[in-house]
Design a protein around this nucleic acid. Structure first.
Lengths: 339, 339
DNA sequence: TTGTAAGCGTTATCAT
DNA sequence: ATGATAACGCTTACAA
């Protein structure tokens, strides 16, 4: 049997209350402290987090719901988040919902039944459809942090990426290099991030008075295959773009695959700007110009906010923090041939 | 305040014991059952998993320790695992250790302190260094499932991939196509999987009496960059291989990047066989010939074994299940030019 | 500062 | 089949 604080108390010749207080960082009389520490060590005592949780209504777990476990942007954030909260002894229950609304709702309920102390929620296509579920958390004062998505009707902490500007900068860069025909491969038509990124694209075109051409505006659903076929369609069209901007990791890779297949040379014949930094981006030749989202920083931020809320500190609530992106300029862009 | 089983009992006019029994699937007298169900619904009662856990010494969580959250093979398995165990209301606490021994040990301890009901452990470079920690679990009768790794001294359930044969088949295929100079880009020198895959490589060469040449045997540490530089070295050497076999996803992509950079045509000038099926593998041109590991199946298997153990069923303990791989033949291989 | 004891939401034993 | 009640391991008034 695992030793309990009772065993420790007995061995140390003090009461359970004293041991408990020691465990919670309260001061004991010197000689008692020594006895307790000795007993703990000798018995190899570990406190029972579950029992503790029952008493203070805390599970010491944080529910995290991401789109997919194989989504590198999401998991990068989670990695940093975990590092941050583990310091205060929280652990993460990670769930994915594979773009399935029912599954998402189910998971939200599931985590609530498990009494998670906080919730971190990742981009989704249906903020509206799940406000109800999220509201259940808020009603019980369970802190919720939303990552890079829009919950217009709900007051939660949010960490947002400056998607609009990110996109604007990328496209502006291309324009300044002389491109006038810039294609975009964007995500889900009605996701928050896609809309923002699209808006940035339009803004840049407008600023430089470049016509918008629907033929080179594609929706790739944030998938490899989507990026691939979108790129292919554009490049095989009557009037192909001289530059392509892909708005996430998977579509960027997909687009590159298409380009390579068509034997189009980057950046001579086509410039490419992608999204998300990934290990391969420095390996591929030519190295990719891309927008880097500060995933680690976002995870850390989310963790810090949660820890603060969990301590009852709501002084800066609600945080809507917008983090900047970085345009990493590498070799995949150049001026168009006939400019 | 959340309603408790007491509130339900009161509202239904029965005792807490009755409600508890109902909740646990025991039979009640018809009219009682109806009253209880009604009360539960009206109060929107949810049982408290933590309190439950305190009583039966169960946390309803399964600790999963993988190398990295961004490792697609690992996360694919976890996805399937989660699907399997969630049906019985278990959730997963997912940890990664980023190839850091201390972190791994820390995580193992961390999960134990959280009273996980079972442990799933992923390939590591140091099976020996952590037997101690794993033993702590076994001593407390906490089921442990090891995925694709070797714990020679420990009796645990294991799910193994038939790495040796996988590798053998791939190399044999190349040989049969006429290749005599086949390079291998392998993982960590002393990881279990690497050794097995290497052994399969050697076995194939031996069977067909092909000399082993250290110059085209490289260790790429399972990373993109490792694969990239290993491929580059081989291909730029005095006597480059006519075929390359890369033993995981990341190195495969890295190797391809190198090949493309060197403007070597696949499969005309170089055949490539990779490891792990990934979304991009069907997108890239030429499509990749590769060894597919049955990640989903492995996750499901692990989940099923755990659920069985958790029910006390040790009738088939210890399972050392070896799952077969599949060689998916696509366009990236062909006979060498001068054969 | 410390001990005592009630209670967190369940389950399980023992009567009935 | 059901009710009463003592646990599970811990925290926290309250008293000393």
């Amino acid at each position: 049997m695992k030793p309990t604080i009772r065993d420790v108390a007995q061995k140390a010749g003090v009461s359970v209350g004293t041991v408990s207080r020691y465990l919670n960082g309260l001061k004991l009389r010197e000689h008692n402290r020594i006895k307790v520490e000795k007993a703990i060590k000798e018995l190899n005592f570990k406190e029972n987090i579950i029992a503790k949780g029952l008493k203070n209504n805390r599970s010491m777990t944080i529910g995290v719901v991401i789109v997919s476990l194989t989504d590198i942007f999401g998991t990068s954030i989670v990695t940093a988040l975990e590092r941050t909260v583990e310091k205060e002894n929280y652990s993460i229950i990670l769930c994915d919902y594979e773009n399935d609304l029912d599954r998402l709702k189910y998971k939200l309920q599931f985590l609530r039944d498990r009494s998670v102390d906080a919730l971190v929620l990742f981009p989704s296509i249906w903020p509206n459809e799940i406000t109800e579920s999220v509201n259940d958390y808020l009603r019980d004062d369970i802190p919720v942090v939303v990552i890079d998505d829009d919950f217009p009707t709900l007051e939660t902490d949010k960490i947002l990426v400056d998607n609009m500007n990110a996109s604007f900068q990328a496209v502006e860069k291309l324009i300044k290099m002389g491109h006038k025909r810039i294609g975009i491969i964007n995500g889900h038509k009605n996701s928050y991030t896609s809309k923002e990124r699209y808006a940035g694209y339009l803004k840049a075109l407008q600023k430089y008075q470049i016509d918008v051409d629907e033929d080179i505006i594609k929706w790739g659903n944030y998938s490899n295959h989507g990026g691939y076929s979108a790129a292919k369609k554009m490049l095989l069209s009557y009037k192909p773009p001289t530059a392509i901007f892909a708005t996430n990791y998977y579509m960027t890779l997909g687009a590159i695959a298409a380009v390579q297949e068509l034997n189009i040379s980057i950046p001579r014949e086509l410039s490419i700007i992608g999204f998300d930094r990934f290990p391969l981006s420095e390996v591929i030749k030519p190295t990719l110009t891309l927008i880097e989202q500060p995933a680690s920083r976002m995870g850390r931020l989310a963790g810090q906010i949660i820890l603060r809320r969990l301590k009852g500190d709501y002084s800066d609530f609600p945080i809507h923090q917008q983090v900047p992106t970085k345009l990493l300029i590498r070799d995949s862009i150049s001026s168009p041939i006939n400019s």
